[in-house]
Nucleic acid binder design. Structure first.
Length: 482
RNA sequence: UCCCUAGUAGCUCAGUUGGUUAGAGCGGCGGACUGUUAAUCCGUAGGUCGUAGGUUCAAGUCCUACCUGGGGAGCCA
């Protein structure tokens, strides 16, 4: 074959250089045709759309055409032409074709037809080759970039917090142990406990559940920082909204109170959504169409808003900011509560809100994102700033429709004595946390931060229903394939 | 971890109160068609009914346990 530099399909589809000789490489999605002419739909991952290759059957070996099957990798030299078909403006009239990698159709699991998401999840190594997962991968990348762009523009400093940590005091969930000890022959202390002094780090270590505490250390010197890294939770939670390994963005800001914190969270989420609308429209439109097909099978009152409309709706509305005690009042007086429709009836101050309550507030009562603030201190973490009422803390949860809690954050307790007292009350080993407490001993200031679950954001932006479909290789209980 | 639900052809599913040789669509393959868009039309191959027990003259169908998937709950991001 003549050597021509490869052009990506995303560029070819924009091209008007009719007559130009180009090379295109990619994977065959479908082939159809008759004795005279073959049409090959080719995709190279550069965009959701395929380019149509037109091959005059008489110009090619029958054996070669036979090898061009769904899934095969091919390299094609040809001429950019104006399409005479109705589905596209541009196509490639093939001059030379080469099969780079054959694909045995009897064994290849991805067929040119609709597959269920469950089936593709079991074939996650090949699901990038479908329109849906190609779109999700491109949107995920765009969102990663937008996160860094947002904070860079605001002058935040990105901090890599440790993935292996000796701190077990975050209280954010069960942890995965990190060890090089021989499980079949564990060293023991005289009391019979496992002797971690002989372990790699000389103490018990875990995978991080949050970079927040280290983030605070950086914020109380750099001013405004953010982390963006993997976090690990060994909770046995089997839901469509939880992963054992997920990515989290945790900004932490000195001199920010809770109001500043909420302003930032809202601006941040809207920035990301706007970025997706500005840069991923083709992929969003595809996902939207896909969702609409699915929605057809649902009852009218269970159907959700069209994807792009939903994203624009969030952009054009202020988030509701609501203290916990007011939320309780709304729920107490709500129809479902009075009619006994809630599985967990609202009786008063102190109880944590169940997902049915959050969903009622977001989806039924306000019909827009809600930031709940000032939760009872007993259901929140030790580091949250205590209010003067002695009952609540300066916490904030951002609740999104369908997803629930997308952001959790708070103003932090900057007072050394109050923090230590709270740690003792909640059995947090404050001696081990001396390094964290030092920030409150030396130049402590008002500061705040929050955590955004990146995959939860992806759920919202893509409209997907299962969190295992918005991360390439999901890790969950009994699930570590690929 | 708890509750509900499902597992039948490569994929998506149907299979009646338990009853003879287990069905369809899509996909594959073969053929027809001068430009198709998930092409269309004709033909064709393809199944240890999740696994292990049990009930019964007889089990895809009923019962038990386990495995795996899905939905919901809790935990949270």
């Amino acid at each position: 074959m003549e050597q021509i530099r490869r052009t990506k399909i995303v560029e070819l589809l924009q091209s008007t250089a009719f007559g130009a000789q180009v090379n295109v490489k990619g994977w065959v999605r479908t082939k159809r045709g008759n004795k005279q002419v073959n049409f090959i739909a080719l995709n190279d991952g550069s965009c959701i759309h395929n380019i149509q290759i037109v091959a005059d059957v008489a110009s090619f070996d029958e054996a070669l055409l036979r090898r061009i099957t769904t899934g095969a990798a091919v390299s094609i030299n040809g001429e950019i032409t104006e399409s005479s078909g109705s589905g596209q403006k541009v196509e490639i009239l093939a001059k030379e074709m080469e099969v780079m990698g054959d694909c045995d159709v009897d064994k290849y699991p991805i067929q040119p037809k609709k597959h269920t998401l469950e089936f593709l999840r079991e074939n996650a190594h090949l699901r990038f080759r479908t329109n849906t997962f190609g779109a999700i991968a491109r949107i995920r990348h765009a969102m990663i970039f937008a996160v860094h762009e947002f904070y860079t523009k605001k002058g935040f400093v990105n901090i890599h917090t440790p993935i292996i940590t000796a701190s077990d005091a975050e209280g954010a969930g069960e942890m995965f142990k990190v060890s090089t000890l021989d499980y079949d022959n564990l060293p023991r202390t005289e009391e019979g406990a496992i002797d971690y002094s002989q372990d790699f780090f000389g103490k018990a270590t875990n995978l991080t559940v949050s970079g927040q505490l280290e983030g605070e250390l950086a914020a109380l010197a750099m001013g405004e920082i953010y982390t963006f890294g993997p976090t690990f939770r060994a909770e046995n939670s089997n839901t469509s909204r939880h992963l054992a390994e997920f990515w989290m963005i945790e900004p932490e800001m000195a001199f920010y109170d809770l109001d500043d914190n909420m302003d930032l969270a809202e601006e941040f989420l809207k920035y990301l959504i706007q970025y997706a609308l500005n840069n991923c429209m083709d992929d969003l439109q595809f996902l939207s169409k896909r969702l609409q097909e699915e929605e057809k099978n649902k009852k009218a009152d269970e159907r959700s808003m069209e994807l792009i409309e939903k994203l624009q709706f969030v952009l054009s509305n202020d988030f509701i900011r609501l203290p916990y005690t007011e939320a309780i009042e709304i729920l107490r007086n709500s129809k479902p509560n009075k009619k006994g429709k809630f599985k967990y009836p609202i009786d008063g101050f102190g109880s944590d809100l169940q997902s049915e309550h959050e969903r009622y507030l977001v989806e039924k009562h306000f019909k827009k994102p809600v930031i709940l603030t000032d939760y009872p201190k007993d259901i929140k973490a030790f580091y949250m700033k205590q209010n003067d009422d002695g009952k609540t803390v300066r916490a904030m949860d951002v609740l999104f429709p369908q997803i629930g809690e997308i952001i959790g954050g708070s103003q932090r307790e900057e007072d050394y004595d109050k923090l230590v007292t709270r740690m003792k009350e909640m059995d947090v080993p404050h001696e081990e946390m001396w390094w964290y407490l030092d920030t409150r001993r030396f130049g402590s200031v008002v500061h705040s931060g929050f955590g955004l679950g990146f995959e939860r954001l992806m759920l919202f932006v893509t409209g997907m229903g299962n969190i295992r479909d918005v991360i390439p290789f999901p890790r969950a209980p009994k699930t570590a394939e690929f």
